[in-house]
């Protein structure tokens, strides 16, 4: 019995280890290849670790494009979108969950509509609207649309689900203790919503960080580019990718987020799971 159990465990470990390969190998390959000279990148047999360790590609990343600037663009846009979404979604989510104002159901239908409309669908009219107000080739569309448009509807929905589950008694007690609506939201509901806020924050950050269609539609000058867009621009005169440079840039993009994730993976994963189940 015990023997068969441990044999089963061994089989499960083996299965999981094999399954890990496609999840781990690309990242490994990306990082190691970025340190290989061009000649070694396509060498056969392939080398798991760079035989010759070079960092030229990293220097070239910053020479060919204003990469630091692009990095900053992506970062500040993602932070702005995340901050704004946390504020506006939690306010709206709270109101929809807790304040019984006339028309709440109708207005909530609007949120559900936003939830179901892929933002790609409206990219043509959005482009025209931002063109009309002179905001094409600025970061405004990349900040405002994710923060307040269709992508934010999901976040408002998640927050509403969370606040609906908070005990009413807490708010009654707070009213007797002398808090008004905003104070109840700010001092009672928000502190208790930390897990939901964390999940919403992570989702929103990753969403903004990954955006690709919107930047290539809205942005045209390299110093305005965001990272995903910049990554695809490391090409030679014939449009072929400069692999070692592209991989170095990709590593620079991916590694910081991966490191944060590995450190905080528990909060990350459990926060998402928690909110997913509630929502």
């Amino acid at each position: 019995m015990i023997k068969s159990r441990s044999r089963l465990a061994l089989a499960l470990y083996a299965l999981m280890a094999v399954l890990c390969i496609p999840f781990l190998f690309p990242t490994w390959w990306m990082i190691t290849s970025s340190f290989k000279p061009v000649s070694e990148i396509f060498a056969f047999p392939p080398t798991l670790l760079p035989r010759q360790f070079v960092t030229d590609a990293y220097g070239r990343v910053f020479e060919l494009q204003p990469f630091a600037r692009q990095y900053f663009n992506s970062l500040y846009i993602a932070v702005a979108v995340t901050t704004g979404t946390l504020a506006f979604s939690s306010l709206a989510g709270y109101a929809f969950a807790r304040i019984r104002f006339p028309g709440a159901n109708l207005l909530f239908m609007l949120v559900l509509t936003g939830l179901l409309i892929p933002s790609e669908v409206t990219i043509v009219p959005l482009f025209q609207m931002f063109l009309d107000v002179g905001a094409v080739n600025t970061h405004w569309p990349l900040i405002l649309v994710p923060m307040l448009g269709a992508p934010s509807a999901l976040q408002t929905f998640i927050m509403r689900q969370f606040f609906s589950g908070l005990p009413h008694e807490l708010e009654d007690a707070a009213r007797i203790d002398g808090l008004g609506r905003f104070a109840i939201y700010h001092r009672i509901a928000l502190p208790l919503a930390k897990p939901a806020l964390a999940a919403v924050g992570i989702f929103t950050f990753l969403y903004s960080w990954n955006l690709y269609l919107e930047p290539i539609v809205f942005l045209s000058s390299p110093d305005k580019f965001t990272l995903p867009q910049a990554l695809t621009q490391f090409v030679d005169a014939y449009g072929g990718p400069m692999w070692n440079i592209q991989l170095a840039a990709a590593s620079l993009t991916a590694i910081p987020v991966l490191v944060v994730f590995v450190i905080a993976q528990k909060q990350f994963i459990e926060g998402l799971a928690y909110t997913g189940l509630k929502g």
Partner: peptide, 20 residues
């Protein structure tokens, strides 16, 4: 009159203690 100005105190069924 608002609850806070009624000079009352209330004990709730589920205690309603602020968890944080």
């Amino acid at each position: 009159v608002e609850p806070k100005d009624r000079d009352i105190a209330m004990v709730f069924q589920n205690y309603a203690l602020y968890p944080h």
